[in-house]
Computed example of a mutant assay.
Amino acid sequence: MSRTIKNVAIAGASGNVGARVLDALLELKFNVTVLSRSPKPFPAAARVQVVDYTSVESLSAAMAGQDAVIDTTFSPELDTPLRLIDAAAKAGVHRFITSDFGLDPEIPGVHDMPVFGRKKASYEAVKKQAADNRLTYTVVACGAFLDWGLSTGFVGLNFEEKTAFLFGDGNNVVPWTTLDDVGKATANVLLHPQETLNRPVYVHSVFMSQTQLFDAAKEILGNEGWTASYNDMEALLQKALADLKSGNITDSTFVVQIQYCLATKALAHPWARDDNSLVGLEEWNGKRVKELIQTIAQKAA
C-alpha cells in the first residue's frame, strides 16, 4: 500500500510547528500546498489554497491530487482535525499526519487527560479510517517542545527572575524536541512511508529531566540568586480538573495537566523505540542545550 509521496498539503502552516514543517518540506523539494483560511504571505515555493475549514467539501476539493496531508493546527476544538481527516479520506489522500506532536499516544493515561481530548479524538478517527483502508497515518511523538518551553516559561524556568517551578521533584527524564527538529522529522516521515506506516514515530532532541535543565541554566547564568519551588503536581492536577469542571478556566488549567504528565514516569519517559536515525535527527549533547539556554536567556534579558 506504500507509495512515493511528492504532493503534500499542510494545514496550520503559519503556526509554531507548521512554519517549521513547511520549511522542512520545501527544503526536501516536496510540492507543497498550504491550506489557508485567508490569503497570507507564505514562501514563494509553496502554493496557497484558500479553503473553508468548516466545510469537508471545500477541504476535500483542495486535497485532490495530494499524496499526503499534514495537520499542524492547534486550536482547542475537535471539529477541525476531524474534518481534515474526513476530507483527506474522501479525497483519496494516502498519508495523514495528525496534529499530535506530543507524548506517546499509545499510553492510555496520556490521552485520558482533558487537555489532550483533541489529540485522542484525532488518533481514534485516523486509526478508524486506516482500518477501513481509506488512508494511512503517522503520528509524530516528540515529547515536549524544548526551545518553545524554555522561551515561554512552560519548562518552569524564568531566566530574568531566576526562579524555578519544579514539577514534583523535577527528576523525571522525558523527551524534549526543538521546533526545528519536529519540522525536520515530520517532513522526513514522508520519505519513509513504509517504515512509518500506521504508527507513532518517536523522536527527540534530548532526554533530560527538569532538574538537569535547571542545572544547565545555573551553569550558564550563575548559581547565585535562584529561588526553586518543588510542587505537588497531584494536588495541582486535581485543582485544575475541578476548575475545568466548574468553568473556572485559565491557561494554567491546561498547562498543569501537561506538566503533571511530564512529572509522571508512567506517562512520560524516554522512548523504548527511537526513530531519530530514520528521520534524520541527531541527539543533542549537553553543550548544545546550554548554548540554547544562553541564547534564549539573552533574548529575555
Rank of each mutant, 00 (worst) to 15 (best):
V174M: 08
G153H: 01
M63V: 08
E106A: 10
N171Q: 15
E219K: 14
N223P: 02
P270H: 08
T4P: 04
L135Y: 00
D86F: 08
L157T: 06
A62R: 12
S205F: 00
K245I: 06
L278M: 05
L59T: 09
D71M: 03
H192N: 15
G92C: 06
L166R: 09
S36H: 10
V182W: 03
A266F: 00
D132A: 15
E234Q: 13
L26Y: 02
V51R: 04
E234N: 10
A216L: 04
T227L: 06
V256W: 07
S55E: 14
D275S: 04
D251M: 14
D169Q: 08
N31G: 08
G109R: 07
V182A: 09
G15C: 02
L237I: 07
N172F: 11
A235S: 12
V203T: 08
A19K: 13
V189I: 15
R95H: 05
D243L: 10
W226P: 04
L22D: 05
T163Q: 12
A46Q: 05
T138G: 03
N31D: 15
F42D: 02
R20G: 03
T211K: 05
F214E: 04
R288D: 14
H204N: 12
I220T: 13
Y123G: 12
E283T: 15
G153L: 10
Y230I: 09
P108I: 03
A300P: 01
N231Y: 07
N31V: 08
T54C: 09
A297R: 10
A68T: 03
F254S: 01
S75E: 13
K90G: 00
G225W: 02
A89N: 09
N133P: 04
F159L: 07
P200R: 13
L135T: 12
L59N: 08
A130Y: 10
L221P: 08
S99W: 02
T72Q: 11
A91D: 00
C142P: 00
Q259M: 13
G65M: 10
A268P: 04
A121W: 04
F101L: 06
G170D: 10
L28R: 15
R199F: 00
F145N: 05
Y202L: 06
P270A: 12
W284Q: 13
L197P: 03
L244A: 14
T177M: 11
K218S: 14
P81K: 06
N248C: 02
V56M: 09
K128Q: 14
E195D: 10
L150A: 12
A64E: 13
A187F: 05
P76M: 08
K128H: 05
G156D: 11
E160D: 14
N231I: 14
V173S: 08
I258H: 02
I97G: 06
S205H: 03
T98A: 15
N158G: 11
